[in-house]
Write a protein that binds this DNA or RNA. Structure first.
Length: 231
DNA sequence: TGCCAGGCCGGGT
DNA sequence: ACCCGGCATGGC
């Protein structure tokens, strides 16, 4: 008889009662569409993805507001901008010196491959886009996947600290599970629809902020478990 | 006040 | 393959 235990590409197994699709359906029924990612353009979304690295979103909003006010939320202008001027504008988002270079690096990659054409860059084959983003110094898996999913509309599920922490605390995964393992759970268990990927990640972050903070666990009150059970 | 936030890199073991 | 220090602001 076939086992109900699903496995990732590796040897790890996950509990049969954890169903990403049921989790999505439950969260969507409760909260509705997430509206994520906040941002008026692919460029703004990509910039936000870099600026929000280990940083509260409220601070990122201030930084993006400064970029807009300075007319720098523009591919060509970012490419020409002096890193120090850029750093001054994004100061509220923290790590502003390093993030200024990270933004410059991202923009330089776009300009190198698709000069002046962010849309073209983002329209690349999904695997190529992701690996190209990962080549950029300052862009890791979560940032790359956020850009792929929310700026480029690719079918890539974003894994963040909340996702990992919640699955750990609910004993769905063990400490040995890495980013790709977790991403595989969702990409294998979810229907292949972009809105599902977008909303589930967004809802996980929303719940995580309330119930799954790093040092003040209130795991007992976390409502997530209500929704991921199959059947 | 101290802790935390939608990470990532580089150097060390 | 891990483990760690550094990076920095603003909100609760």
């Amino acid at each position: 008889m076939s086992s109900y235990t699903r496995t990732t590409a590796g040897t790890k197994t996950i509990p049969e009662h954890f169903d990403p699709s049921a989790l999505y359906q439950g969260l969507f029924a409760w909260y509705g569409p997430s509206g994520w990612w906040p941002g008026d353009s692919p460029l703004e979304i990509a910039v936000g993805a870099v600026l929000t690295q280990n940083t509260a979103w409220g601070n990122v909003e201030k930084a993006i507001g400064n970029l807009k006010a300075g007319g720098l939320l523009d591919l060509e202008r970012l490419h020409r901008a002096d890193p120090q001027d850029l750093a001054a504008l994004i100061r509220p988002s923290g790590y502003y010196n390093i993030k200024a270079f990270r933004l410059k690096n991202l923009v330089a990659a776009v300009m190198e491959d698709f000069p002046g054409d962010l849309e073209g860059f983002l329209a690349q084959d999904t695997g190529r886009l992701r690996s190209r983003l990962l080549e950029v110094n300052g862009i890791g898996k979560e940032t790359a996947d956020s850009i792929c999913c929310y700026a480029a509309g690719k079918l890539i599920f974003v894994v963040d600290a909340y996702t990992r922490r919640m699955l750990l605390r609910h004993l769905i995964i063990g400490p040995g599970w890495d980013y790709d393992d977790i991403q595989n759970i969702f990409q294998q268990g979810l229907p292949g629809r972009l809105e599902v990927y977008k909303d589930l990640h967004a809802h996980i972050v929303f719940i995580g902020k309330e119930y799954c903070r790093a040092r003040q666990p209130r795991c007992d009150e976390c409502p997530l478990g209500r929704w991921w059970h199959t059947g």
